[in-house]
Structures are given as C-alpha cells and as structure tokens.
C-alpha cells in the first residue's frame, strides 16, 4: 500500500520525459495492473471458492489455484446455503425493502424539491436550508435513540373489518422502509437539477392550462432522468447493504434482510465454502447492476461527493 500511495510522484516522474501524456508509459501500466489485481482478486477468490468444497479451498490457499476455478467444482455450496438459511426469503425481503424505499424515495423527495424549486411556498428558502442542515447529523448518532422512538410510534392496523391502533414499529417491514424514504440529500440533488431546467417550459404549460401536478409529472420529471438515476442508486445501495439498523430492529427470521443472514453461518460448524456462496449470492446482483449501469453509478458517486 505504501508504494501505491507514492504513485502520483512516480507516474509524474515517469512522464516527465514524455511530455503531455502522463501515466501512459510502462510504469503507469504496471501500477494499473498491480492495483487491478489488489482490488479484484479478493472478490475473485470469494467467487471461485464458493464453487469448491471446503477441503479444497484450504488446500488451494498456498498456490495460484486459490484464484482459479480448478479442481472439483460444483454448486453444492449454493444448494447447502438454501438448506441452511432461508436465503430465498432474505433475498425477497431485501429486494422488496430496497425497491419500495427507492420508489417512494424518488417520488416523495422529488415532489418536495419540485415545490421548493417551482411553486410559491412561503419561506421556502428557509425550508431548503433547514432540510440541508439535517445532513450534518450522521445516521450513527440517530440510530440508538431512533430504536427507542420507533418502539413508541403508533400504527393503524387493518385486519378484516377492524381498524385497531397498535404501538411499536419494531420487527416489521415498515421500520426498515419508512425512516429512509425522506432524504435531505435526495431533496437537495433534485432541487439542484430542477433549477437547471428552464422555467419557461412550465410557464408555457401553465398557459396551456396544465395543473402544477401535471407539470411535475409530465414536464419536469421526464426531463430529470439523470437525477432520478442518481437518487435511485444512492438510495438503493445503502438499503441493500443495510446492517446496523435491521440488526437492532428486526428479530423475526421471516422479516430479515440479506446482510443479517450472514450470522447464521457462524452459529454451528463454519463451512467457508457456504459462507463464500452466500456472500456471492448477495453481492452478484449489485455487481451486475453496477456493470449494466456503470455511467449512472459513477455519476451518482461523483455527485454524492457534494455532500459533506
């Protein structure tokens, strides 16, 4: 790692003789390839090991075979994972919780940003400032009081014809979704984007008699694809990866998300092949999404840098 840290100097020095194209010499490529190995081989090791029986995983550790799909390959570990934990249930839960959080988050945060950007709401500059101010509080400081708080919250329960008032949100789907729908940073991103859309467009629509809601739905939102993608990704990743929160608020097995499932593999005898199979199952969907929507992912991360 220490050598890596020095590389701006090294690259620059290499290119001193090369004029305008720094980092295109041999040294630059050696560094790029070395870094590629460092960053991708552990994940390759995880995936390859998930296809091997435990004994072979340990046997292969001392040679390059650790990173190669050789020997007795099978999907046995994957089968065992589904026998050992309700993996399908966890996947359904995580997909459901993430998708609902993303959809509601996009709708609610973009509506708020639309009102702040386009409509005459008294004190909207102050409201926007207050919303952005909430970003200075890290979630970690809120999490513990929030557990106590969600346990006090009421909920209306419909069962058949009866409407009953219950107390406490612990151990539900809603406790995994509702607190994460509204997001100050998403409001901010949408607001920034909406401000870049010419207001003449909605003035024109107003003249044609369109309502505010129609302008939001038919004019502004269709033009905001990149902002929607950014917010969707920045909401999806933490929802799929969430660990601290469901660890504290969800006890029932049938409500748990995928990340909590890892605990099941350390209760009795540990099979590392199965651990690697389970972690591959819960990682590959996100990696596939990333590779399919690379540009959107990278842009969303770049804009999330604005935060802070």
């Amino acid at each position: 790692m220490a050598t890596v840290q020095l590389d701006p100097t090294a690259v620059a020095r290499k290119s001193a003789t090369r004029g305008l194209r720094p980092g295109t010499g041999i040294g630059g490529w050696v560094l790029r390839i070395a870094l590629a190995i460092v960053f991708s081989f552990p994940l390759l090791f995880m995936f390859v090991s998930s296809l091997k029986p435990d004994q072979q995983i340990f046997g292969d550790l001392s040679s390059i075979a650790a990173f190669l799909p050789v020997g007795h390959l099978s999907l046995d570990n994957y089968g065992a994972v589904f026998d050992r934990v309700p993996a399908a249930r966890f996947l359904v839960n995580s997909v459901g919780v993430s998708v609902v959080t993303v959809v509601l988050g996009v709708i609610i945060n973009s509506m708020a940003a639309f009102a702040l950007s386009r409509m005459r709401v008294r004190g909207k500059a102050v409201i926007l400032t207050l919303i952005i101010a909430t970003l200075i509080v890290p979630f970690e400081t809120l999490a513990l009081p929030l557990v106590w708080w969600v346990n006090q919250l009421p909920w209306l329960q419909f069962d058949g014809f009866n409407l009953t008032l219950t107390q406490g949100w612990l151990d539900t789907y809603r406790v995994q979704i509702v607190p994460f729908i509204a997001n100050a940073f998403s409001v901010y991103l949408f607001h920034q984007y909406f401000e870049s859309i010419p207001k003449e467009l909605d003035e024109a629509a107003r003249v044609d008699g369109a309502s505010w809601f129609t302008i939001y739905r038919k004019v502004v939102m269709p033009l905001s694809g990149p902002a929607v993608a950014t917010v969707a990704i920045l909401t999806f990743l933490p929802a799929w990866n969430s660990y601290l929160w469901p660890l504290m608020v969800v006890q029932s097995e049938e409500l748990r998300p995928v990340m909590i499932g890892v605990q099941y593999f350390f209760q009795l005898n540990v099979s590392w092949g199965q651990v690697m199979a389970y972690t591959s199952i819960i990682t590959l969907p996100v990696v596939a999404l990333f590779i399919a929507f690379q540009r959107a992912f990278v842009n969303s991360i770049a804009s999330s840098g604005v935060k802070g």
Binding site: I108, N109, M111, A112, F114, A115, L116, M119, R120, V121, R122, K124, I127, I131, T134, V137, T141, L142, L144, P145, L146, W148, W149, V178, P179, F180, I181, A182, A184, V187, W212, F213, Y216
Partner: peptide, 28 residues
C-alpha cells in the same frame, strides 16, 4: 391554492424528516 398544493407536495418529505431525523436528534 398554489400555496396549499405546494405544502401538500412538500409535506410528506418534511414530516418524515421531522419524525426520523429531527425527533431522534432531540431525543438523543
């Protein structure tokens, strides 16, 4: 009406932020 509609669109986000960011911060 614009004022009211504006608040209706702003309302859900503001309410949720109060419930799940402001209140827990004060509770801490």
């Amino acid at each position: 009406r614009e004022q009211a509609l504006g608040w209706a669109m702003l309302g859900p986000a503001v309410l949720l932020l109060i419930l799940f960011v402001v209140v827990p911060a004060l509770l801490a």
